[in-house]
Amino acid sequence: MKKIIFLDLDGTLWTFEKIPGSALEAIEHARKNGHKIYINTGRTRCEVPQFLLDMNLDGYCFGSGSEIIIDNKQVLFEPLKKRDTQFIQHIAKDSGFSLEGSKMTFTSEKNRERMRQFNTDNRMGNRFLSFPDISTMTDDDYNQVMKVSIHFDSLSQREEILRQLPKHLTFTNFMHLGGEITHSECNKATAIQFVKNYYEEEYKTVAIGDSENDLPMLEYADISVAMGNGVKEVKEKADYVTDKIDNDGLYKAFKYLKLF
C-alpha cells in the first residue's frame, strides 16, 4: 500500500541551516515510487522559508494543522477567533508572546528581546526578529492569526495564564517555559486525518518528528518514527527511532520503511 509521509520541519527535515542532501534524495525516490510527502509543521505559512515552499511537495500542513495546502490549493483555513486572540493577548500581557499568522506574524517587544537572546546561533533566522509589533495590528491582521507562541517568566506565571484558558483552546509545551496556544481541535494529528480523508485512494500514514508538538501525529499515524536527535518523550512513543538529522536520519528512516 502506498504511504503519505508527514514530516516535521525543524530538526526533522531542516537543520535550521539546510536540508541534508540525503533527505532530498530520499524524498525524490519515495515520490517516484508513488508515495506522497507532506510537511506537517507548527510554523505558520509566513514563517516557513520560501525555498521549502518551492520544493512543491504534495502538500503542506501549517500552524499545527490550522492551514492545509494540497497540490498548491488551500483546502483548510482555521484561524483563531479574534476574541480568543485578544483574550490571550490580555492574560499574557506580562509574558513574551507572538501572534503567528498565515500572512504575517506580530510580536511583543518582550518576546522580540527573548528572540534576540535565543537567536545567537541564528536558528530562527533574522526574519523572526523583524516581525512587526503587535500594536500595529489591524482587524484583518487578527483574522489571520493561527496560533500564539508564548514564553513565560516563571512556572507560577505559566500556571496562572494557563488556568484562564477556555476549554476550546489548548497549550502545547515545546521548550522550557515556552509553548504554543492553538485550537483544541487543530493539531498535527487532525492534519493527518484531514489529508487522509481528502484522498479517495487508501493510504497508510507515516509521521516523522522530533519534538513535543509532534506527539499527536506520532500517536495518530499508522507508523511513527522519531529522529535520533528527538526528545525522550518522542523516542518513547515512536515505532522506530532513526539516526540524527545530520547523520542521514531521514534517509535511513525512508530506507527502513522501504519507501524506495
Rank of each mutant, 00 (worst) to 15 (best):
T170C: 11
T170I: 14
T170R: 15
F171K: 02
F171R: 01
T172A: 13
T172I: 14
T172W: 04
T172V: 14
N173S: 14
N173F: 08
N173P: 00
F174C: 12
F174S: 13
F174W: 15
F174L: 05
F174T: 09
F174G: 07
M175C: 09
M175A: 08
M175Q: 11
M175F: 13
M175V: 05
M175H: 13
M175I: 04
M175N: 10
H176N: 12
H176S: 11
H176T: 11
H176A: 12
H176E: 14
L177M: 08
L177S: 01
L177Q: 02
L177P: 01
G178C: 02
G179S: 05
G179N: 02
G179W: 00
E180V: 05
E180G: 07
E180F: 03
I181Y: 01
I181C: 04
I181G: 00
I181N: 00
T182H: 11
T182N: 15
T182W: 05
H183P: 05
H183Q: 10
H183A: 07
H183V: 05
H183S: 12
S184P: 00
S184R: 15
S184K: 14
E185S: 14
E185D: 14
N187I: 01
K188W: 03
K188Q: 07
K188V: 09
K188A: 09
K188N: 07
K188P: 04
A189G: 04
A189Y: 04
A189L: 02
T190N: 01
T190V: 08
T190M: 03
T190A: 03
I192Q: 04
I192S: 05
Q193M: 10
F194S: 10
F194R: 14
F194K: 15
F194W: 13
F194T: 15
F194M: 13
V195R: 01
K196H: 10
K196D: 12
N197F: 08
N197C: 08
N197D: 15
N197Y: 06
N197P: 03
Y198K: 08
Y198I: 01
Y198A: 08
Y198G: 03
Y198C: 04
Y199V: 06
Y199T: 04
Y199R: 05
Y199K: 08
Y199L: 07
E200A: 12
E200S: 15
E200Y: 09
E200Q: 15
E201P: 02
E201A: 14
E201N: 12
E201R: 09
E201D: 14
E202M: 04
E202P: 03
E202C: 02
E202F: 05
E202Y: 06
Y203N: 10
Y203W: 11
K204Y: 12
K204C: 09
K204S: 14
T205H: 10
T205S: 10
T205I: 07
T205M: 06
T205F: 07
T205D: 06
T205E: 08
T205L: 04
T205Y: 11
V206M: 06
V206P: 04
V206K: 03
A207I: 10
A207L: 08
A207S: 11
A207N: 09
A207W: 10
I208H: 00
I208P: 00
I208N: 00
I208C: 02
